[in-house]
């Protein structure tokens, strides 16, 4: 994975470019309004992405606790509605809590630090190899095995279409 440019960097870049590069080229009023709508929707995504999963996980646990709490609040109420509330407490309310997700910038910083450590490790392995250390070869193999998977996954995750836009 890459940590920079972040999703937010890309979305902000598009918003800026819509304003700076596209809006001056748009002739019709309708087109100009649609550009503004696009900017607003991109801003909407920018605001959602960094917090949405963390909030969902947190609220998942809050909702299950709430469902478990409701039977004691309604007390001895009778009837189908009350039974359904008690049933939800027994089923959905007993779901295990989801783990708390770290904030996305914290996760990216931790991942980035480890990736930097891999860069430094590669430097060190070349030194070991140059010194003739027999462990250098297998260590390279281990690091490269991981990096091969990572590069293939990055390609699948990030690459959009074939070729390069505007290049013939």
């Amino acid at each position: 994975m890459i940590t920079r440019p972040s999703v937010d960097d890309v979305l902000e870049g598009i918003i800026i470019s819509l304003q700076k590069d596209i809006l001056p080229e748009v002739q019709s009023d309708r087109g100009r309004v649609l550009v503004q709508v696009m900017q607003a929707l991109l801003q909407f995504v920018r605001q959602r992405v960094p917090v949405e999963q963390q909030i969902m996980a947190e609220e998942h646990n809050t909702i299950t606790a709430l469902l478990r709490q409701l039977p004691s609040i309604i007390g001895e109420a009778a009837g189908p509605a009350a039974e359904r509330i008690r049933a939800r407490a027994e089923t959905l309310g007993t779901r295990p809590d989801l783990p708390a997700l770290p904030p996305s910038d914290e996760l990216a910083a931790a991942y980035r630090q480890l990736s930097e450590a891999l860069v430094e490790t590669i430097d060190d392995l070349y030194e070991l190899q140059a010194a003739g250390h027999p462990g250098a070869g297998p260590a390279f193999e281990a690091v490269r095995s991981y990096l091969a998977v990572r590069a293939a996954r990055d390609f699948q995750t990030y690459i959009v279409g074939a070729g390069m836009a505007g290049r013939g």
Partner: peptide
């Protein structure tokens, strides 16, 4: 140029 750590590029140059 490393806008993000790129271990494969480092390996390639070495």
């Amino acid at each position: 140029f490393a806008f993000d750590p790129v271990p494969v590029f480092r390996d390639a140059y070495l």
